[in-house]
């Protein structure tokens, strides 16, 4: 599992690679909080390299959404979500609530 944060002009781009199970979810939670602590509430998650995204990772995502969208100050937008991860978002009812883009460039450009 690997998390890489790139600070862009409009937003932070957080690239996720590998398995995000309950062991990895705290690191995802920290990366998202760390951005918020710097006053960054506009975040794009590059999901293209994600192999697995469990309920603990979904919880970290939901916590981040709530924090970022508060006071209309930002959003977490997802880019390049692999099909099997998208299926998990469909089952858990996440898909209709979040903004998902085909690629990172479009997601970053949406801010």
């Amino acid at each position: 599992m690997e998390i890489k944060t790139t600070k862009l002009k409009r937003c932070d781009l957080i690239t996720l690679i590998g398995r995000f199970d309950s062991a990895a979810a705290p690191a995802l939670d920290n990366a998202l909080r760390e951005a918020n602590e710097r006053g960054v509430y506009r975040i794009v998650l590059d999901m293209s390299g994600v192999e697995y995204f469990g309920s603990a990772a979904i919880r970290a995502l939901v916590v981040a959404y709530k924090a970022c969208r508060r006071f209309n100050r930002g959003d977490v937008r997802l880019a390049a979500v692999p099909d099997k991860i998208k299926q998990v978002f469909d089952i858990t009812g996440i898909t209709p609530l979040v903004n998902i883009y085909d690629d990172v460039v479009t997601a970053v450009g949406s801010f």
Binding site: I58, V62, Y65, K66, R69, L97, V98
Partner: peptide, 11 residues
Amino acid sequence: PLEERSIGGLG
């Protein structure tokens, strides 16, 4: 809506 979701029970 996401803002009202509780975070337990998902597993």
